[in-house]
C-alpha cells in the first residue's frame, strides 16, 4: 500500500516535470498561438465591464433634469459652431497644401482612416504601461497604428486581437519616436520612461541641441515630427520644464511631463494609414 502510494507520487512528479520542461522548450510559434488563443478568451473580461460602465453612465445621465440637458445642449452647440468654422478653415488649408504639393512635385503626406475606440481596461503600473481598447482586427485596426486623443499622443497599437487591441502608451519604456519642440524644426528623440508608483508616467527627450532652453516658468511644448512615422505632424506629446547638458557637451537631455489625462482616458482615436494604392 505504502509502496504503491510512493510509485504514484513518483509518477505524478515525473509527469509534472515533463510537462514543465515541455512548457519551457516548446517552439515560440506554439507559444504565440496559445497566447493569442487565451488573449481572445479573456477579451470578454475586458469588454464586459467597459459596456457596464457605459450603461451606468447612460442611466446616471438620463436621470438629469431637462434644464441640465438643455444647457448642455446649448454649450455643445456653441462648441460645434466653433469647430465647424475650424473644419472649413482646414478644408481651405488642405486645398492650398494640395496645390503647393502639385506645384513643387512634393509627395503627399499620409492620410488616415479614423477609428474611435472606447478604452476597456487600463493596465498602468510601474512595470508596464498599456491600455486595452474595444476595437480589433474585425474593425480594421492594424498593428503599429497611431493612437491619439484630444490632448495629443496616446501611444501605438502593439497587439491586435479580433475584438480588442492593446495600446502601448507614450509613457511606456518601449515607446520611442522622433519629435520637435514647438517653433523649432530640429528633430529630437522622445522615449518613454515609465511610471513610478503613486506618480504619473513621464518620458525623456534626448539629442536636444545645446542652444535650446526650457524652464519651469517657460516650459517648451514637445510635438510630433513629420518624420515620426505613423503620427501626423504637430500633435502635442508633453511639456519639458528643464534641459540638462550631457557629458559630451553637445546635446541636452530633459524630462518630458505627460498629461495626467492619459491615466483617465475613456475614448481614443486610432489612425490607420490609408495605403498608397487605395488613394489611387
Amino acid at each position: 500500500m505504502a509502496s504503491s502510494h510512493k510509485n504514484t507520487a513518483r509518477l505524478n512528479i515525473g509527469i509534472f516535470i515533463a510537462i514543465l520542461a515541455l512548457c519551457l522548450v516548446v517552439p515560440s510559434g506554439v507559444k504565440n498561438f496559445v497566447s493569442d488563443m487565451f488573449g481572445e478568451f479573456r477579451a470578454p473580461f475586458d469588454i464586459l465591464p467597459s459596456h457596464l460602465r457605459d450603461l451606468q453612465k447612460y442611466w446616471s445621465l438620463s436621470s438629469r433634469s431637462k434644464r441640465d440637458l438643455i444647457e448642455a445642449g446649448r454649450d455643445l452647440a456653441r462648441l460645434n459652431a466653433a469647430l465647424e468654422l475650424r473644419v472649413l478653415e482646414n478644408e481651405t488649408l488642405r486645398s492650398r497644401i494640395k496645390r503647393y504639393e502639385d506645384m513643387f512635385s512634393i509627395p503627399p503626406t499620409g492620410m488616415y482612416k479614423q477609428h474611435i475606440a472606447r478604452v476597456a481596461r487600463r493596465d498602468l503600473n510601474a512595470w508596464w504601461q498599456q491600455l486595452v481598447i474595444r476595437k480589433g482586427s474585425i474593425d480594421g485596426i492594424k498593428e503599429g497604428s497611431a493612437v491619439i486623443y484630444g490632448g495629443g499622443v496616446v501611444g501605438r497599437i502593439k497587439e491586435v486581437g479580433l475584438f480588442t487591441s492593446v495600446v502601448e502608451l507614450v509613457s511606456s519604456r518601449n515607446f520611442r519616436m522622433a519629435a520637435v519642440f514647438e517653433g523649432d524644426d530640429r528633430p529630437v528623440i522622445y522615449q518613454g520612461v515609465g511610471q513610478v508608483s503613486f506618480g504619473s508616467g513621464c518620458g525623456e527627450v534626448t539629442d536636444v541641441y545645446s542652444d535650446m532652453t526650457a524652464s519651469v516658468s517657460k516650459p517648451r511644448k514637445l510635438m510630433t515630427s513629420s518624420i515620426a512615422g505613423v503620427f501626423p505632424e504637430g500633435l502635442p506629446i508633453g511639456t519639458v520644464s528643464s534641459l540638462n547638458l550631457n557629458y559630451d557637451g553637445i546635446f541636452k537631455t530633459g524630462r518630458v511631463d505627460l498629461s495626467t489625462n492619459l491615466s483617465a482616458l475613456n475614448e481614443v482615436l486610432v489612425l490607420v494609414p490609408i495605403e498608397a494604392e487605395q488613394k489611387k
Binding site: 475586458d46 481596461r121 487600463r122 498602468l124 503600473n125 512595470w127 511610471q195 508608483s197
Partner: peptide, 18 residues
C-alpha cells in the same frame, strides 16, 4: 475572481499600483 482582479487592477491604475 479573475474578472474582479482585472477590475481592481483597472481601478488601481490611477495610483500606478499593480
Amino acid at each position: 475572481l479573475f474578472f474582479l482582479i482585472g477590475v481592481m487592477g483597472d481601478i488601481l491604475s490611477g495610483i500606478g499600483a499593480y
